[in-house]
Amino acid sequence: MTTSSESNALSLTLDVNGKACEATVEPRTTLADCLRNELHLTGTHLGCEHGVCGACTVLVDGRTARSCLMLAAQAEGCRVTTIEGLSGEGELEPLQQAFWDRHGLQCGFCTPGVLMTLTELLRDEPNANEDAIRLALSGHLCRCTGYQNIVAAALSAVECIRRRP
C-alpha cells in the first residue's frame, strides 16, 4: 500500500518517549521541528539544520539520528526518544549525573544531542574507553567545553554503570 500525501497536512501518530503523540504537520516538516513545535519537546535543539552539529540528535528505534535530517512522517512506526525521555521527572540518569558532577556542559545547547549519542554508545559498549567516546562524539560540535569534560563525564558514567549492582 502506498501512502501519499497529496494534501498539505499529514496526521501523524508518533511514539515519543513511550507515549503515543498526535501531530498534524506539513509533509516537509522535519522530525526536529515536529518534536519542538508540535509536541513542545524543546529539549531537542537545532544548531545547523544540515546534519553536522549533532545538537538535534535523538534516538530512533534506539539508534541515534539527526532529527533535522528526518521528516516527521518518517518517524511513524518508530520509537523516538528525546532528552526529555532520558530520566523524565525522576532522578538523573548516571550519565546526566556524571555531566553535572564533572562539569560536562557549559551553555547546554549541544548537551541534549551529546547525551543521546552517549546513551547509545554506553548501551552498545558499556566499557567504552576514551578513544571510543571521542569517536562517538566526533559527530557533535561543541564550542564551549573543548570536549574535555564531556569525555571525562562519559568515562565517569562508564565507571559508575560498571559499579552498579
Binding site: 502506498t2 501512502t3 501519499s4 500525501s5 497529496e6 499529514l10 509533509p27 516537509r28 539544520e49 512522517a73
Partner: peptide, 21 residues
C-alpha cells in the same frame, strides 16, 4: 533553512515506488 513544499509518498513495495517514480 527549511525545505520547500513537496508531495510525500511512502510506498511499502518496490513496485509501488517504481510506479510513482
Amino acid at each position: 533553512m527549511k525545505p520547500a513544499p513537496f508531495v510525500l509518498h511512502r510506498p511499502r513495495t518496490l513496485a509501488d515506488a517504481l510506479e510513482l517514480l
